[in-house]
């Protein structure tokens, strides 16, 4: 049995936004916000509205809020469906049969000002964002 998480169906990095569509798995479907936690500064959390309809989970945000909160040249943001008392739930893809997600499931980068932001699959099959700032 996979741990409780939001199983990704689609990720849409386009038109200045990133949208994540999936299904809540292994817990009561109550997540109503999508939290972006900075991997190096775990107290920096961005919250975005999400909708839960039955088990369906749909959250999205402007890339602008991420680029604005990115302070170093290269920040990684982990995605969590936010539930009271269960902050470490992740957004990932665990229920299909492909192993090497980091290589197979790739997404394009979007630019905002001098920043580029790109969703990527982690080696643990979760979804994170990488935000890079041009340092010139």
């Amino acid at each position: 049995m996979e741990p409780a998480h939001a199983e990704i169906e689609h990720v849409w990095p386009r038109d200045g936004r990133i949208r994540i569509v999936g299904a809540v798995v292994g817990m009561p479907p109550a997540a109503a916000t999508l939290a972006l936690r900075n991997r190096d500064r775990s107290r920096t959390v961005l919250r975005c509205p999400a909708t839960v309809n039955g088990r369906r989970f749909d959250g999205s945000f402007d890339i602008e809020i991420v680029t604005a909160a990115t302070t170093s040249a290269r920040d990684v943001w982990d995605l969590h469906p936010d539930l009271p008392g269960q902050a470490e739930l992740r957004v990932g893809r665990h229920l299909d049969d492909t192993a090497d997600k980091k290589r197979i499931m790739t997404f394009p980068a979007q630019s905002h000002g001098f920043s580029r932001i790109r969703p990527y699959s982690t080696v643990k099959r979760n979804l994170s964002l990488i935000c890079e700032r041009a340092t010139t």
Partner: peptide
């Protein structure tokens, strides 16, 4: 090909699976 998939916004639908030694199993799916 990966850039083409990204440009056409097909990253949720088209996957470059890499080489495999067990193509028979993949055909069966």
């Amino acid at each position: 090909l990966e850039r083409l998939i990204h440009r056409l916004h097909l990253y949720n639908h088209v996957f470059l699976m890499g080489g495999t030694t067990a193509l028979e199993e993949e055909f069966a799916k």
